[in-house]
């Protein structure tokens, strides 16, 4: 689930409490469904249980007391390993891809985000070749062909999106860092 990693990515900028993380998430990924506060605290609870974040203190700025959370070394390692992994080339992965690009920009900068996009593109094109072989096989059933068509048009759309996003990486970098 990419929400956990987005929160870990946001914590690379320093300790934050849940309220700040919710707003930072919604602003970094404006097209994603806004996070509910309950979801933020439930996710932070799981991350704390798994040792990926720790409670770092509490703040009370005229309102209710808020617990701040900080990234741990295992948390940083889990984030790095998530960023290093390309997504399996399958339909409907665009939201995870976008989360990964944004987190890569936040934590590792433009070069890492570009490197990720390049590796992801290669995974997508290889999968498209495999699917094309499946549907070009004279023995393929109509069902196989239709399923391959579905996957191919989605992967093709993702590829075009990857290319456009790459053109916007520098702009996106400024936006997520601001």
């Amino acid at each position: 689930m990419s929400t956990s990693y987005v929160l870990l990515g946001l914590l690379t900028t320093g300790p934050h409490h849940g309220y700040e993380l919710k707003h930072a998430h919604d602003s970094a990924l404006p097209q994603a469904k806004p996070l509910g506060f309950g979801q933020v605290y439930a996710t932070l609870g799981r991350l704390e249980r798994d040792g990926l974040v720790v409670k770092a203190g509490s703040e009370q700025d005229g309102g209710p007391e808020r617990t701040t959370f900080a990234l741990t070394e295992p948390g940083r390692a889990a984030l790095t390993s998530w960023l290093a992994e390309v997504e399996p080339a399958a339909p409907h992965v665009a939201s995870t891809l976008l989360a990964k690009v944004v987190v890569a920009l936040l934590t590792a900068g433009e070069t890492a985000a570009r490197d990720y996009l390049i590796r992801q593109r290669q995974t997508h094109t290889e999968r498209m070749r495999e699917l094309t072989r499946v549907k070009s096989d004279p023995n393929a059933s109509v069902g196989d062909v239709v399923a391959a068509d579905f996957a191919l048009v989605h992967l093709d759309a993702d590829l075009r999106w990857l290319e456009t996003t790459l053109g916007r990486v520098a702009e996106l970098h400024q936006e997520v860092r601001s």
Binding site: R114, D115, L117, I118, R119, R121, Q122, T125, L162, E163, L166, G167
Partner: peptide, 14 residues
């Protein structure tokens, strides 16, 4: 080689 307009870049594992 990147397929994304990055001159001189080689995809990892290519």
């Amino acid at each position: 080689p990147s397929g994304l307009g990055l001159r001189g870049a080689t995809p990892v594992g290519a």
